[in-house]
């Protein structure tokens, strides 16, 4: 009897202990990610800054994501227009389709979906690349040779994606608008002139800005999380595999959470 009560108390203690430990671990990790962010900013504004590596990464990360961006943009434009079109047609609101589609593409859909796809492609790529360098001691070699892995590996990737993700989102938006146009012309008899004039009169400067700022922030989140995980990867190839999965999931969650708050801030400022 006594024993059982004793063990109950024990298991409660063990669970409590585990939860505390887990919580502390998550807290510590967030602290480390934040520290990495501070280091990135500090390294950006002091020498050496590797401009050629930045250009290389823009080319590598940005250009490599072009095809995926075009595909996602076109698909969003086609599918959204089709759905809104038939939905609004019931209420005789077909003429509002260009406005609704372009606004949601600019503010939400283009930056969010492009970033999520890039998180999958580029975030996992960064974690795999830096993770593999870490487990083969190349990151240590960078340090041992008197240079900084943050400056050499992280800073160029960070700014490369902060610069190229807004560009990719813009492309995705533009392609989405074309997709919308195709559907509007063929399904709803809306003319090109009317469609484009509606798009340009509806989507305001701050809507574009909202999309661009979001994309830049998401770009930062993806590289920050990808690089962090790459730099703490252990356990050889198995560790590299686990890291890539973790980065895709974690950065997607962070993107979704941040998206809500940035949207809210922009609505507060402009309304």
């Amino acid at each position: 009897m006594n024993n059982e009560i004793g063990s109950d108390k024990n298991s409660a203690e063990i669970i409590h202990h585990h939860l505390t430990k887990r919580f502390l671990k998550v807290l510590m990790m967030n602290g480390e990610i934040f520290q990495l962010f501070i280091d990135i900013i500090r390294s950006t504004f002091s020498r050496p800054f590797y401009f050629n590596r930045l250009v290389e990464q823009i080319y590598h990360l940005g250009r490599g994501s072009l095809s995926i961006t075009i595909v996602i943009g076109l698909t969003m434009g086609l599918v959204m227009t089709l759905n809104f079109g038939y939905g609004l047609a019931k209420f005789g609101g077909t003429l509002y389709v260009p406005a609704v589609v372009s606004l949601s593409l600019a503010r939400e859909m283009a930056p969010l979906f492009t970033s999520l796809l890039v998180a999958g492609r580029v975030g996992s790529g960064i974690a795999a690349e830096i993770g593999a360098m870490n487990v083969t001691q190349q990151v240590d070699a960078i340090r041992a040779l008197g240079t900084s892995p943050i400056r050499v590996l992280v800073v160029p990737r960070f700014w490369a994606l902060v610069i190229s993700l807004p560009l990719l989102s813009s492309l995705s938006f533009a392609v989405g608008i074309i997709g919308g146009l195709i559907v509007c012309k063929n399904e709803f008899d809306i003319t090109t002139g009317f469609y484009l004039s509606k798009v340009f009169s509806t989507v305001k400067f701050h809507d574009y800005m909202s999309g661009l700022v979001k994309s830049a922030v998401f770009g930062g989140i993806i590289t920050l999380i990808g690089c962090y995980r790459g730099l703490v990867t252990r356990d050889g190839t198995k560790g590299v595999g686990q890291s890539t999965t973790w980065v895709v999931v974690t950065s997607s969650i962070w993107i979704l959470i941040t998206d809500f708050f940035i949207s809210k801030i922009f609505l507060m400022i402009w309304n």
Binding site: M133, T136, Q137, Q138, D140, A141, R143, A144, L145, G146, T147, S148
Partner: peptide, 21 residues
Amino acid sequence: DQLKDFRIKISYSFQSGALFD
């Protein structure tokens, strides 16, 4: 940052080579 100068004077030859691949 401060270690940089010493890492130039004391160099470490890795067991695996640790070449940039």
